Amino acid sequence: MNDRTTSEHTGDASEDATQAFVAHRNLLFTVAYEMLGSAADAEDVLQETWLRWRAVDLAAVRDRRAYLVRVTTRQALSHLRVLGRRKESYVGPWLPEPLLTAPDVAEDVELADSVSMAMMLVLETLAPTERAVFVLREVFDLGYDEIAAAVDKSAAAVRQIAHRARAHVAARRPRGTTSAAETRRTVEAFRQAVETGDLRRLLDVLAPDVVLLTDGGGVVRAALEPVVGAAPVARVLGGIAGAASLHPARVNGGPALVVRLDGEVDTVVALRVDDGRVTGLYAVRNPEKLSHLERETTLRR
């Protein structure tokens, strides 16, 4: 093979590798994000996956999707352990980095549920390997053999881990359902009550045991502990009236309000609605977590 032929072959292989990576990129990002809860760290994982993928002999790879998911999972696990140490010194509640998502995410009920703020917080309570196994099995429906290769465990061990993780999540998973129409009405009533400072209307739309979590990361003002109960939450929200504009959005596949001050994003509030009442409010104020709200992020299974 002469130099020119070798160069052309290398160029074709490089283009083939690029096309394969691009074809699966949204899936790989979703895997990494579900494991980490951080879009910035998920992007780092994808960069590391790409560097490893570029060095692979594609002829030796039988299933490119499975191979890329395996590499992404391993890189995400490494990041997850580092993130765990970082969260130990985090100031106040830690919330996932919110993503502005397209309507098609909400249409995929399982995907929307898995990336919701409430579910992502449940996933935070799993050990790193349990989280990886749960995400790959329950969200992406990978086989036990594939997962075993990704987490360096036997298929039998993965089955046990999956069973344990499922039980753990089931015990903590938020329950209750509300139709899309009722959710929209509840979110709109909540928005109007907050914008107008209508305390009575706000108390009507908040569940008695509503929980408000605010993530300021020690950078901006935020409650350092969860605020629990309709009256305390209403008092906190009362300070927003007249000072900001609230814009409906789809964040992490669910309803949210983007709070803007002087045109700039100040806070993102994801809402959980059950039986026509707001039961959970997840307010992200940390500026370092608000960079993915200017454009939609494509998530895929």
Rank of each mutant, 00 (worst) to 15 (best):
D3Y: 06
H9W: 07
T10Q: 14
S14T: 15
A17E: 07
F21V: 04
A23W: 11
T30P: 05
E34F: 05
M35H: 04
A39F: 02
A40L: 10
A40Y: 09
E43D: 14
E48L: 11
T49L: 01
T49S: 04
T49H: 00
T49E: 00
W50Y: 12
L51I: 09
R52D: 14
R54C: 07
R54D: 13
V56R: 08
L58Q: 08
A59C: 07
A59G: 14
A60T: 15
R62T: 13
R65P: 01
A66S: 15
Y67A: 15
V71T: 13
V71F: 02
R74I: 06
Q75H: 12
H79R: 15
H79P: 03
L80T: 00
R85C: 03
R85H: 09
K87G: 02
E88W: 07
Y90H: 15
V91M: 06
L95D: 03
P96I: 02
P96K: 01
E97M: 11
P98D: 08
T101R: 12
A102S: 12
P103K: 04
D108M: 05
D108A: 08
E110S: 15
E110I: 10
L111M: 13
A112C: 05
S114T: 02
V115N: 03
L123A: 00
E124L: 11
A132K: 01
V135L: 04
L136P: 02
V139S: 10
F140M: 15
D141N: 14
Y144N: 05
A149N: 03
A149S: 07
A150L: 03
V151H: 07
V151F: 04
A155Y: 09
A156Y: 12
A157E: 15
R159T: 12
A167H: 12
A171V: 07
A171C: 06
R173K: 13
R175N: 10
G176Q: 06
G176Y: 05
A181Q: 13
T183Y: 09
T183W: 08
R184V: 11
R185E: 15
T186M: 08
A193R: 09
T196D: 09
D198E: 06
D198G: 03
V205S: 08
V205K: 08
A207C: 09
V210E: 02
L213V: 06
G218K: 10
R221Q: 13
A222T: 00
E225F: 07
P226T: 01
P226D: 02
A231L: 13
P232K: 00
A234D: 06
L237H: 01
G238I: 05
I240F: 14
I240Y: 14
L246Y: 02
V251M: 08
G253S: 01
L257E: 07
V265F: 06
D266T: 12
T267Q: 09
T267F: 01
V269A: 15
V269M: 15
A270T: 05
L271R: 10
R272N: 12
V273L: 04
R277D: 05
G280N: 00
L281C: 03
V284M: 10
N286R: 11
K289C: 08
